[in-house]
Computed example of a mutant assay.
Amino acid sequence: MDKPAQIALLIDADNATAARIDVILGELSRLGETNVRRAYGNWTKSGLKAWQEVLHENAIRPVQQFDLSKGKNASDIALAVDAVHILHTQRPDAFALVSSDADFTPLVMHLREHGAHVYGFGDAKTPAPFQSACTRFLVLDRLSSASGQADAGPTASDEPAPAAKRTTRARKATAAPTTVAKAPGTAATRSARKTAEDAVPAAPPPRATRAQLRGDRKLVALLRRAVEGAADDSGWARVGTVGNHISNQSSFDPRNYGYAKLSKLLEATDLFDIRDVGGPGMAVRDRRTSTNGTSTPNP
């Protein structure tokens, strides 16, 4: 029996939400065995309370790092140093970095240069350099919860709440001690805000529409290049092979666009002819290419 891939999970607790840890571990369980689990932060801060509540039940070792200089986050350096040490001593097959901080981009590149896969987990606003550097980057709010269902939350089709209810919700969401509200730039405010974010998982954004998908030039170019590279002489490419082409050149994951599978996203773009839908031999072909191999105008 083949040994499962060994994964080192390193969490930037100062720059990630604890509410999605079950989703992260669930995703990693499909990729291999997460035998190294560490979370970095200054655990004396009240803003990390949400993380403290999930560390032990998920066998995550907290790594204490005091803020040695005001306004500086020393946890990032500690995480990076440990990652390089783990790389050259334990030699895991992959790393999982939980953060939305682009400062980790050089670290990701170093790990990949030494043969390790890097799976990034962060929010949708994570800078593109960090996302692109990863083997695969997953937007946490796009992933399903541990139950396999998306977190409860409003969708594009939901009716707007009555004005009175919206006002009440807004008051509850923004309620904070008077002393905190008067100093929006203080550490207390940031701590209170982070605690609130960790306590309630964000609702997943609605699935990208056909217009949004086709308007994303980078995505369209990536899909078309992958289909072209995987196509046979007649222009048809198996979806599985298309996925392999994409994973070899990009950190793309269809769930970041709200689609569980690549096949569903390809269908949604309406840019490709599709055959054997839902079957193991499902294949796609660029709609610009006719059956005789000549090109037709862009849709």
Rank of each mutant, 00 (worst) to 15 (best):
P4S: 09
D14K: 05
T17C: 13
A18V: 07
A19R: 06
A19D: 12
L25P: 02
E27K: 11
L31H: 10
T34H: 05
R37D: 01
Y40K: 04
E57R: 15
I60P: 01
I60A: 03
R61P: 01
P62Q: 07
Q64A: 10
F66H: 08
S69H: 10
K70D: 11
A74R: 02
A80E: 03
H85M: 13
L87T: 04
H88T: 15
A94R: 01
V98Q: 06
S99F: 01
A102Y: 02
F104A: 02
P106F: 03
L107Q: 05
L111Y: 02
E113R: 13
G120L: 08
G120A: 07
F121C: 01
F121I: 02
K125Y: 04
K125N: 15
K125R: 15
P127D: 03
A128G: 00
Q131A: 10
S132V: 07
F137Y: 11
L138W: 00
L143W: 00
Q149Y: 08
A150F: 09
A150N: 02
D151Y: 12
D151F: 13
D151A: 09
P154S: 08
A156D: 15
D158V: 07
A161W: 14
K165F: 12
T167H: 12
T168V: 11
K172Y: 10
A175H: 11
A176L: 15
T179N: 11
K182L: 14
A183G: 00
G185A: 08
A188D: 14
T189C: 10
A192K: 12
R193G: 10
D198K: 05
D198Y: 05
D198C: 07
A199G: 04
R207A: 11
L213P: 07
G215K: 06
A221Y: 02
R225C: 02
R225M: 05
V227N: 00
G229I: 00
S234D: 12
G235F: 07
W236G: 08
N244A: 14
H245W: 08
Y257G: 05
K264I: 00
D270M: 08
G281T: 12
M282T: 15
A283G: 07
G293S: 01
T294M: 14
T296S: 14
P299K: 08
